[in-house]
Design a protein around this nucleic acid. Structure first.
Lengths: 108, 108
DNA sequence: ACAGTATTTCTATATTTCTGGAAATATAGT
DNA sequence: ACTATATTTCCAGAAATATAGAAATACTGT
């Protein structure tokens, strides 16, 4: 992952509303959630929510598929994993001492 | 970790210059790096760099200790770990299906 | 074609962020 | 006290972001 892409993704997650959206989608799992359900859950203006979701989609952390009139949003788990890896990549590479600082969580 | 704190930390990392600072410190390991060395490595104006480092310190991702006239900066590995965990916390908790989406990397 | 629901785009405003020069502060050595 | 080095704070302008109302678009069913 390139630094600028990683920064853009972290910035996208670095807003309380967007982080809430993202985490809600992470909880929702593979089946995802329609925009409308997110709006009810988060109680935000539709246009505001739409902008935030778009931001997440642009950086790739969220994907969308249309199902009739509703747009279903899903967390992109693979990309999240790449982002987590990037953050601790080459940990202590420039250090003389031993490396034991970070551990990134595992799931399944 | 509270959502607002996590968002603030992600926002701090979500700027190319700050992400570069942070990653340089992650590579540097436990001994850390003085501000001055960061300035040379990243080739940024001192005041600009100082602002960015301050942002990282405020959210807790970087710590500083003074050694004479130089300020040594270090990545806070423990907090990074907490942040990574937070991002995938309760993954699929609201889902019927099985959960296998994300895995957070391990180190040592 | 029309009506209805879902969602986005347009537009505007208030606020925040990024950047860096200049000046100030901190520490150490003489 | 004076000088030198390291770093921060002050200041300001330009650019980007967050928010949301209103209008537009997309799809479905009749």
């Amino acid at each position: 992952m390139k630094l600028d892409d990683a920064a853009a993704r972290l910035e996208a997650l670095g807003n309380p509303t967007r982080l809430k959206i993202y985490r809600t989608l992470v909880r929702a799992g593979q089946e995802g959630l329609p925009v409308g359900r997110l709006q009810v859950k988060l109680d935000a203006a539709a246009s505001t929510l739409s902008h935030h979701i778009k931001t997440l989609v642009i950086v790739g952390l969220v994907t969308q598929t249309r199902d009739g009139t509703t747009l279903v949003c899903r967390a992109n788990y693979g990309l999240m994993r790449e982002l987590l890896d990037y953050m601790v990549e080459e940990c202590c590479a420039d250090s003389e001492g031993s490396c034991a600082p970070v551990a990134v969580p595992r799931v399944a």
